[in-house]
Nucleic acid binder design. Structure first.
Lengths: 222, 222
DNA sequence: GTCTATAAATGGATAGAC
DNA sequence: GTCTATCCATTTATAGAC
């Protein structure tokens, strides 16, 4: 995330180490969250994991909430970067399918991250404005893909989000590590495309494949 | 839940009061959970709400986990009872639509209950065997409705659950009190029915309504 | 069944020496 | 930047008087 370049005028060794330690702390926080739950680890646990006393963490983060917010930002940034790096099919419908599979893989790959980003497991945690901006940025990709496929009704995007987070949520909650729900993604998309208000010119392709995906049966990782 | 009948041989006044107090405590627990989150209230808070000292709660529940489990059982029992009481259309497809709307109403009507029943907001909470049996019982209704509609593929039920919990989850998390996602339920069902592996004899009806619900536009309550 | 008293631990956060 | 020391609130839970 923080990439200083040695020799450049703006390089600041002290600041560099500071940022590196912050990321080390966040890495440990993810690890603890995965084994003990998002709210299940204390600052003492976290400090111990990075060989510090818990008080020293306050040098890097002003509060536990700030740690959660940094984790949220990391997670959302990872989603943005995944989306920016996707090389989607030229066919916008096919592109939507690929994007959906990528999103499910992203969710299932880290259930705790999914909870932090898309569920309200931390009742009193509110993402900062900076973090929310990342969230909006991630969503903008989805909206653009829909627009490219001729899906201009905002409700299409809403339904899309609901269906995919629904699949991810069930997979993570009821069959962690399996594929019971993720492998339903193509069928889910068939349904979504079939009921879209403005399916655009690719509709015929979609119609002819009802009940079976017309895409490669590549399995979602997870 | 506990309905003694005065005068009958099995009637036990002491036990009756005990059960009544337990339910009063659970009622207060739901109230606190709704305002401060499922994990956001302490036994002190709860005891204060029922005008007790926190230690007295242990007369009724051996631990906080037991309180959560009793809440889980109450919530699941409410779902079972809602389903048992549904007077569904004779047309099995129409019945599925009605059942879906009822389920969404059930979820949205109490977001905290939804979280307890369908999300893992309490990392170390594991429902007891008794509670899980209620969960299975609730699911059996859904399976029966699908079977009646000719939907015999278990994946159909899985996808159904994912889509509906997805809608509920988005509604509760991103538009609490609104209808941004719940009003998409008919479209979601059109998609589900359109991609079902074994849609049965009602398929033509479903097909002809793509993009618009063929059912009454009755809004989900929420 | 409810209370007082208390345990025994854990929580997040601050002050100040070094 | 890291530490020791400490604060102060809060947690779940138990023992025993009444």
């Amino acid at each position: 995330m923080f990439r200083p370049v040695a020799g450049e005028p703006a390089f600041d060794r002290r600041r560099w180490r500071h940022e590196a330690t912050k990321e080390e702390i966040l890495g440990a926080a993810w690890g603890l969250a995965r084994t003990r739950g998002l709210a299940g680890f204390s600052l003492r646990d976290l400090a111990f994991a990075v060989h510090m006393r818990h008080q020293s963490l306050y040098t890097y983060f002003p509060s536990k909430q700030a740690i959660y917010d940094a984790m949220f930002a990391q997670g959302m940034r990872a989603l943005v970067e995944q989306r920016a790096a996707l090389a989607l099919d030229r066919d916008p419908i096919q592109a939507l399918r690929e994007a959906a599979r990528a999103f499910l893989a992203f969710c299932v790959e880290d259930g705790v991250r999914y909870q932090l980003l898309f569920e309200r497991v931390l009742p009193d945690f509110v993402p900062s404005a900076t973090s929310m901006a990342l969230s909006v940025e991630a969503l903008s990709y989805l909206e653009a893909w829909h627009a490219a496929a001729g899906l201009t009704d905002p409700a299409d995007v809403d339904l899309w989000r609901a269906v995919l987070t629904g699949l991810a949520g069930q997979q993570i909650a009821n069959d962690p590590g399996g594929t019971r729900w993720t492998h339903l993604v193509d069928r889910a998309i068939d349904g979504l495309l079939g009921t879209a208000r403005d399916p655009g010119r690719k509709r015929a392709t979609v119609r002819g494949t009802r009940g079976r995906a017309n895409s490669a049966p590549k399995e979602v990782e997870g």
